[in-house]
Write a protein that binds this DNA or RNA. Structure first.
Length: 557
RNA sequence: GCGCCUGUAGCUCAGCUGGAUAGAGCAACGGACUUCUAAUCCGUAGGUCGCAGGUUCGAAUCCUGCCAGGCGCGCCA
């Protein structure tokens, strides 16, 4: 949009014309790239093409710039002024009216403003959270959920066909441990003395689960021996915990298209089949009584065990099958969102994907750094081992969904995040979520005021827009014009924080405008209509951007 | 020891994949509410972009080597 508004003024025709007149020796022109200078004094738009072409044209950049400007054909008359600056930048100063079509586009496209076709319909899957069903979700999972969900929203908006998936690790040793933990707590409840090992889950929720199971099925289960009781206990607990996680995620505004069970891969015999398949291909071999996958053939530093000496498969074995299965379901690209402490796992997973015959670029991992939970600047003690942690549900309950989601997205996912519970609740400038939401509410409030005053706001025509000519008008429209680019960049890099930052910048531009100019001017309805047109566009973009983050846009605060 | 990530204002962080005088919020200081919500705005001050080289018209950004911090290096997940 930024470029579209003015590109007609700066076409490659200038270079061609200069060449035709014999001023530029080479017909090899570079692409015209317009960018927005950081400093206002450098104009609204600038291009470095004169510098880019210096080599092929064998001319000084400033000379080339002169030639380009001389042959510029400003068909639309939008250029107010051009200048050559610095080593050879060409700066364009644009007339305020040139920006007005941005507003028309926003009103016409409404919720689709900023949408693009980066993905060209590519089928992409993003898997996130995927917490083990052995305890409630904590704040770290919350960040993963916010990043994954928002990234999915952005990718959809960028033309990808996105599926969100949650992988349930409902198989293996930790499920056994979960079952044992519940079983032992249950035995305590029926009066047996038990030795509760440190390796078991210590949290109080385990005792609650045991009590529920006891109430439902009676003492019988807990009187059985360990071997017979563990699986029923595990199944009940895992299912209950998974249901709880799902509910917590719904409260957090996160839903999934698919909940995929690890156990289902075993039940369908897929893990065993894949092991056979890769053995036949020579990618799995036996050594020391275990089966190894030749990940080192695909860039991993060493081979990895898939079946242990004791005959049990490793987590990696089912992960290979799981990722193979994802591609077989037709996804052209697969994204995993992991905690940063799992980064050592990437090379082997990537190796497995390549061994399955897919390209490197088809698999990507977003490593989300950890969250430091604070309360008024002081660290909140969190120990998973002792079963003491602040759950996601607690955080959402205390600070609200919007504040939690927004704060999780105020940093690049790759950067550690301080999450201060007191700050998140504060309704001040320190809390960016309110700063942005306040814009939406303020604009809604202006409409309420207009209605209360009985103002006649009908009869808007695009001619009214000529009233928008102050520097603040232009600055605000330019901020709106940057939205599509922000979306495209956020999509291309899968970085939701770019949307967050964009919104804070737009909000700042609006608040400045609000303090400088009155929107409702009883004595100038034409100006009022024009300004309402402007701020409604702001409101739409704020609402659209917040929606990408999964944050609401309130009409009143 | 090897690998990945990080190092930017007193603090917390951006920096559009190489552009001009490196930005924002907080904290500090000084201002603005008879006017559409002050959950706001305006101004001042604050920097060896960890260090040293290299690549080129041009580097916070790319390359190499150091320094410091975090994480990971299991037949755990």
């Amino acid at each position: 949009m930024f470029n579209e508004a003015v590109t007609q003024g700066d076409d490659p025709g200038a270079a061609a014309a200069a060449h035709a007149h014999g001023i530029l020796p080479s017909a090899d022109f570079c692409e015209v790239v317009l960018e927005e200078p950081k400093a206002d004094s450098h104009g609204d738009l600038s291009t470095n093409m004169a510098m880019q072409m210096a080599k092929t044209q064998r001319m000084a950049p400033r000379k080339i710039a002169e030639a380009l400007i001389a042959h510029l054909d400003d068909k639309t008359g939008m250029i107010a002024q051009t200048e050559i600056a610095g080593p050879g930048f060409i700066n364009f100063f644009i007339k305020p009216a040139a920006w007005h079509p941005v507003l028309t586009a926003i009103h016409d496209q409404d919720g689709d403003y900023g949408r693009c076709d980066l993905g060209k319909g590519m089928r992409i899957q993003i898997e996130f959270v995927s917490s083990n069903p052995t305890g409630p979700l904590h704040v770290g999972h919350g960040r993963g959920a916010a990043v994954g969900d928002s990234t999915a929203n952005i990718l959809k908006f960028c033309g990808y066909d996105v599926q969100k998936e949650y992988y349930i690790n409902d198989s293996g040793r930790q499920i056994q441990t979960l079952g044992l933990s519940v079983y032992l707590r249950g035995r305590e409840l029926i009066g047996k003395t038990v030795d509760f090992p440190e390796t078991c889950y210590q949290g109080a929720y385990i005792r609650d689960l045991a009590a529920e199971l006891l109430a439902r099925d009676g003492q019988e289960l807990f009187e059985k021996d360990e071997a017979a009781a563990i699986m029923p206990c595990a199944r009940y607990a895992a299912e209950k915990i998974t249901r709880g996680m799902r509910a917590d995620l719904v409260d957090f505004g996160v839903t999934f298209d698919c909940w995929f069970s690890e156990q289902s891969l075993y039940d369908a015999g897929k893990v065993a089949a894949d092991i056979r398949y890769f053995r036949e291909k020579g990618l799995i071999y036996e050594n020391d009584n275990a089966l190894w996958f030749k990940t080192s053939d695909f860039g991993d530093e060493k081979d990895r065990v898939v079946v242990r000496q004791n005959g049990q498969t490793t987590y990696f074995a089912s992960d290979i099958t799981y990722h193979k299965d994802k591609f077989e379901r037709g996804f052209q690209k697969v994204i995993d969102v992991w905690g940063a402490d799992h980064h050592g796992y990437i090379p082997r997973m990537r190796a497995a994907v390549e061994a399955c015959g897919y390209r490197r670029e088809q698999f990507d991992v977003l490593l989300v750094q950890l969250v430091n939970l604070l309360r008024a600047g002081q660290p909140v003690a969190m120990s998973t081992r002792a079963g003491e942690f602040v759950t996601l549900a607690d955080v959402v309950k205390e600070v609200g969904r919007d504040a939690a989601r927004f704060i999780f997205l105020t940093r690049h996912y790759d950067s550690p995040l301080d999450f201060d519970l007191e700050l998140a609740k504060q309704k001040t400038n320190d809390n960016p979520v309110y700063y942005v939401q306040y814009v939406h509410a303020r604009i809604a409030s202006i409409y309420r005021k207009a209605e209360a005053n009985g103002m006649d706001l009908g009869g808007f025509s695009t001619d009214d827009l000529t009233a928008l000519s102050t520097p603040e008008d232009v600055a605000l429209i330019k901020a709106l014009a940057r939205y599509p680019e922000a979306v495209a960049l956020a999509g291309a890099a899968m970085e939701p924080h770019r949307i967050t930052y964009y919104l804070m910048t737009l909000a700042a531009a609006f608040h400045t405008y609000y303090n400088r100019h009155r929107v409702l001017c009883e004595d100038d309805l034409r100006l009022t209509r024009a300004r309402l047109h402007l701020i409604t566009a702001v409101q739409k973009v704020i609402r659209n951007g917040l929606a990408l983050l999964g944050v609401s846009a309130p009409d009143a605060m």
